[in-house]
Write a protein that binds this DNA or RNA. Structure first.
Lengths: 153, 153
DNA sequence: CTCCTAAGTTCATCTACCGAACTACATAGT
DNA sequence: ACTATGTAGTTCGGTAGATGAACTTAGGAG
């Protein structure tokens, strides 16, 4: 039996889970943000089984997070580059980064941090409400049907 | 062969992937935030295979995102409640929500939205830098070793 | 002619997910 | 006493997907 698919469920978390729930996929995206583009780069960096990597890259291209770009004619070779949709996915990785840093390490935290290229300072991702700038908490929120909510101002 | 584990990798994204990469797990957490506490509640809401749900709940308890609380003595019954660590995980789901809403639907967006319990308004999660309040983008960042970065101010 | 790189594919093995059925324990009804 | 219902799982046969290793295809370098 096929693993239950969430990609047509009417919930953004479910559909996103269908992607990040594929083993290795968030790490492939992490490597894409780290500048990797070629099959062998991804494979060497992650030690991911080659068959799995091929399937993940294919899917990420299908879903539009990566695009396949030719970089050589003879023999034909392609590399994988982030699209706008793929770059937007950074937010999800950043939230995972922050939560993992805060909760999956001992008191010293992880040995790596996110650094701003321009200022050289550490960056700490935080999830806020776009309108109010206030930090989100699950307790203050619920999931509602769109038509039940009054439009913003 | 066991599926490659990421939970000891020295990267917060990898360790978090080890959790969210378990099929169904983000949806179980979504339901926890929606107020579900009991096995049957989760099972009915998600239609998840019971054996899988049992394993996911066990793992989430092991990892400290949920805690098992007795609510009845005869017969012994337990419910699953969010811990602080579990509540903090909301940020990850919120980022998934936002990206899924923005990129996995047609022009009308998903039929559901996040609503603030107090104001009744829609909430749109956004990932920013905690220090500067500026929206994050993957392009401006890199991953660095902690000791290479000058401390903040 | 042999070795090397790149980007995969193929293969056998094993894990984990699938739906359905079953168990265990208590209560309520007839 | 027997049956039905509710809750929280466990067990089971079948199958999709992950794993590591070897293989393929195409070209370039020594």
């Amino acid at each position: 039996m096929r693993r239950t698919r969430f990609d047509r469920w009417p919930c953004p978390i479910a559909r996103t889970t269908d992607l990040v729930g594929d083993w290795w996929t968030p790490l492939v995206m992490r490597e894409a943000f780290a500048g990797r583009r070629r099959f062998e780069d991804f494979q060497r960096a992650l030690k991911v089984p080659r068959a799995v990597l091929a399937r993940r890259l294919d899917r990420l291209v299908d879903e539009g997070l990566l695009k396949k770009v030719s970089y050589e004619e003879h023999p034909p070779r392609y590399e994988y580059r982030l699209t706008d949709k793929g770059r937007a996915f950074w937010d999800v990785l950043a939230a995972m980064w922050r939560w993992g840093s805060d909760w999956l390490w001992g008191k010293n935290g992880p040995p790596v941090i996110l650094v701003d290229n321009e200022t050289g300072r550490e960056v700490r991702p935080l999830v806020v409400d776009e309108n109010t700038g206030i930090r989100l908490t699950g307790r203050r929120l619920h999931i509602g049907r769109k038509q039940d909510v009054r439009p913003p101002s």
